[in-house]
Write a protein that binds this DNA or RNA. Structure first.
Lengths: 239, 239
DNA sequence: TGTACATCAGTGAACGCGCGTTCACTGATGTAC
DNA sequence: TGTACATCAGTGAACGCGCGTTCACTGATGTAC
């Protein structure tokens, strides 16, 4: 699933001619990256073996070394290219939801909530959450890669922010959070809910994300009152 | 950091008598678990070596096998005992914040937000987030352990929920989210913000969590209007 | 189009190293009398 | 309290296995004429 792009760039009429050497090599590279995504997700960075990756793609380990400098380079390539592709796919899915909502005059929150449920269940998406966790761990352990991982959330926020901003304006969302912050929070919470549903589906009901988003996008009210609000006259802690 | 409890159960006046064999063994076990927490956090489950763990605790690998059945059992013990201890510590920190807020008549959100910043920076807390990620990955990969990991969030929600419920009532929070759901969302978002700050501090400003919580705990307004609200008359998507 | 040669993409066996685990051993602690 | 023996807690070397990486080799593809 979800690796490299170049597929869509082919001359629309699927040509049955023999592939050129360069094309065949690119295809091998792509297949190896797809296999790497599967195996790294399943076993983790340290737990995955290059032989299993190569074999799962239908090649020998030598092919891996002909296409990548080594395990680390393979992983970083997956982090960079594969993750970007995942972000693009998700951004398109979300854009479709916002378009649909605008077209039918409903709000997009329920559909976004259903997206959480689907992401945590669909077989073809199963690898994304573990991979994201592996990438984060890799970044924490290898400061050199931190910038790269941070940039990925930056990319995602960049794609989502216009939609969030439009929705905030349309709904007259209360001040206190700007569009960037709202996007960061929404994306982080989306991922967190997907992760949580993976290990305990009951703890995240189907429409929880929708209800949280409705609260976050709520129109202005007395929210902005700040911290000097006095509540000293009640007990504060239940038992 | 943060492993096993029994420390506090000692006869308050630190006794300088020689330890009994059982006490010495318990101490060794605790030291090994502490070292395991450090090394597993630093290298991951598959990447950590038992020799490094044992050495970091000041023992040989044989001592590890005398105290634990093997690598997996050591990890699961850490997951169970160590994580519970981490949850208890965090619950106490949060309880202190709620108490303080109730006593001084301010709201607890700014202090909770500062807790996010501290958690993502303090050296002694550095291991928690990677360990939690390792535990989640382990659960996803070993369905047998899913229940255990799910139970941990359950424990944490159980401890936090009374405080959240009290705060919701005090602030007259709008309907739509019950106390359990609010607690799940708050805990997940807390962790997500801590993680995000670890790789990109600038993307999570010091008071972001406070502002989100204020929005989530906002008093009732027109939020409950549901999905049939018509917005068909505007464009829906910015560019 | 055909031929000769060079380069390329991929093979698969081999190497060396580090790991999880085992085990014969040892000094210290506990127990029975 | 002292002695003899059994058990315990921990040692550290050894084993076997799987891994990342290397490399001599090969058939297919590309190139020059």
């Amino acid at each position: 699933m979800q690796v490299t792009a170049e597929e869509g760039a082919q001359p629309a009429a699927k040509p049955r001619r023999r592939l050129t050497q360069a094309e065949a090599k690119a295809r091998t590279r792509r297949q190896l990256l797809e296999a790497a995504a599967r195996v790294f997700a399943e076993k983790g960075y340290a737990g995955a073996s290059l032989e299993e990756i190569a074999e799962s793609a239908g090649y020998s380990t030598g092919a891996l070394y002909y296409n990548f400098a080594g395990k680390q380079e393979l992983f970083l390539e997956l982090l960079d290219v594969g993750w970007t592709r995942g972000i693009d796919r998700r951004a398109r899915a979300v854009a479709r939801i916002f378009d649909e909502a605008a077209a039918t005059g409903t709000d997009p929150f329920d559909a976004l909530s259903r997206l959480v449920a689907r992401r945590s269940q669909r077989q073809s998406e199963q690898a994304n959450a573990p991979l994201a966790a592996e990438f984060w761990l890799y970044a924490v352990r290898n400061p050199d890669a931190m910038g790269l991982v941070a940039a990925k959330l930056g990319e995602e926020v960049g794609l989502m922010k216009p939609m969030i901003a439009a929705a905030m304006e349309r709904l007259g969302a209360a001040p206190g959070l700007d569009a960037s912050e709202m996007t960061v929070v929404a994306v982080l919470l989306f991922d967190a809910l997907v992760r949580q549903r993976r290990i305990d589906p009951q703890s995240v009901s189907d429409d929880l994300f929708a209800r949280v988003l409705r609260r976050l996008f709520a129109a202005r009210d007395q929210t902005g009152r700040g911290t000097e609000h006095t509540v000293a006259d009640d007990e504060g802690l239940a038992t």
